[in-house]
Amino acid sequence: MRGRRRLFGGLNFTLRDGDLLRVTGANGSGKTSLLRILCGLLSPVCGMVRWGGGDIRSLREEYWRQLLYIGHAHAVKGELTALENLLVTCTLVGVNVSRGQALEALSRLGLAGYEALPVKILSRGQQRRVALARLFLSEKIPLWILDEPFDALDAGAVDCVRLLIAQHLSRGAAVVLTTHQEIRIDNPQVQYINIVS
């Protein structure tokens, strides 16, 4: 529900290991709201989300330990450097990384040489990459929820992230994402949800 408007209802799906779920829909159809519900940030008016056997609202920290969420607002601070941003966010969500690992993740997304610059002087796409560098450090997290991960990225970076997601799926993890672009991810187990308002 947004305001008095019903965005969607009657959703019923199960996500298995190795599944990719693509959520599509027009602007304002409620894609982000759905992802936020899946994360437990937003409580649905009715219905519930279960992880394993339990309601995510009672699992809380136990569920969040197994979840990575990168929202549309991607939690990158303009005043901090790329490296600081990555280290702080990882510590915040409870992922232990060393400085070296963080530097490597940044360079794999083409940010070598930019680590020590304040993020606000980087371009939008580069800022997005700083946020996405977390993916390299979250291989053990079994559920990724990504809101518009390819937004503002150039072709090279899109390929890199696409590959990363495919690898993660092949490891048996589940990925939920929204996207406007037509991006092929090689994976046999794809589900689609199209939200029509």
């Binding site: 009657g10 959703l11 019923n12 799906f13 199960t14 899946l38 009715c46 219905g47 519930m48 309601d55």
Partner: peptide
């Protein structure tokens, strides 16, 4: 595994 259901009573909780 993640399950999403439209009813609250799915588990009888």
């Amino acid at each position: 595994m993640m399950y999403v259901t439209p009813e609250n009573t799915a588990t009888g909780q």
